[in-house]
Amino acid sequence: RDEDEKEKIKEALKRGNEDKAKEIAKRANVSPEEYERLRKEAE
Rank of each mutant, 00 (worst) to 15 (best):
E18V: 14
E34A: 05
K14F: 06
P32Y: 11
E3F: 11
I9P: 00
K8A: 15
E23P: 00
E5D: 13
K20V: 15
G16L: 03
K40M: 13
R1K: 13
E18F: 14
E5V: 15
L38N: 00
K10N: 02
L13Q: 01
R39A: 09
D2L: 15
D2N: 13
D2S: 09
K14S: 06
R1I: 14
E3Y: 11
K6M: 14
A28F: 14
R27W: 10
G16F: 04
R39V: 12
E11P: 00
A21N: 01
K10E: 02
A21P: 00
N17W: 14
E5T: 15
K26Q: 12
S31A: 08
K40H: 11
S31K: 07
A28C: 07
L13D: 00
E5G: 06
N29K: 08
R39Q: 08
E33C: 06
R27S: 11
E36I: 05
R27Y: 11
A12H: 11
G16Y: 03
E43S: 09
N29T: 03
A25M: 04
K26L: 15
E3L: 08
Y35V: 05
E7T: 13
R15E: 15
K26S: 09
K8C: 06
E18Q: 08
E33P: 04
E7M: 14
A12Y: 13
R27P: 02
E41Q: 09
N17G: 03
R37D: 08
I24V: 05
E33A: 10
E3R: 10
K8P: 02
D2W: 14
K8M: 14
K10G: 02
G16K: 05
E43I: 14
R39M: 08
I24N: 02
R39E: 06
P32D: 14
E7G: 10
E3D: 14
K8I: 06
A42M: 08
V30M: 12
R37F: 08
K22V: 07
E43H: 11
E5R: 06
L38K: 01
I24S: 02
K22S: 06
A28D: 04
I24T: 03
E41S: 04
P32I: 11
G16R: 04
A12S: 05
R39I: 07
R37H: 08
E41C: 04
E11S: 09
R27A: 14
E23M: 08
K8W: 09
K26I: 12
A42D: 02
E11M: 09
L38G: 00
V30T: 04
P32E: 13
K20G: 08
D2F: 14
K10R: 09
E5A: 15
E11L: 09
K10C: 05
A25I: 02
L13W: 03
L13A: 00
I24A: 04
K20Q: 14
N17T: 04
K20M: 15
E7N: 12
P32M: 11
P32T: 10
K20Y: 14
E23N: 05
A21E: 01
R1C: 09
I9E: 00
D2A: 10
E41D: 07
L13K: 00
E43Q: 13
E34K: 01
R15G: 10
N17D: 15
E43P: 03
K10H: 02
I9F: 02
K10L: 10
E34C: 00
D19W: 11
E11Y: 05
E3C: 05
S31C: 04
K40S: 12
K22L: 13
R37E: 10
E33Q: 09
R27G: 09
D19P: 09
R27H: 12
K6N: 09
E34G: 02
D19R: 12
E18P: 09
K14E: 04
E36Y: 04
A21F: 01
E34F: 02
E41A: 06
A28S: 08
D2H: 13
A25P: 02
K20N: 07
I9S: 01
A25N: 01
A12K: 02
R39F: 07
E43V: 11
A28R: 03
N29Y: 03
A28Q: 08
R27Q: 13
N17S: 06
K10P: 00
A28N: 13
A25E: 02
K10S: 03
K8S: 10
E18Y: 15
E5C: 06
K20P: 01
E36N: 07
Y35R: 01
D2M: 08
E43A: 13
Y35G: 00
L38F: 04
I9T: 01
I9C: 02
K22A: 10
N17F: 12
R37K: 11
D19S: 13
E33M: 08
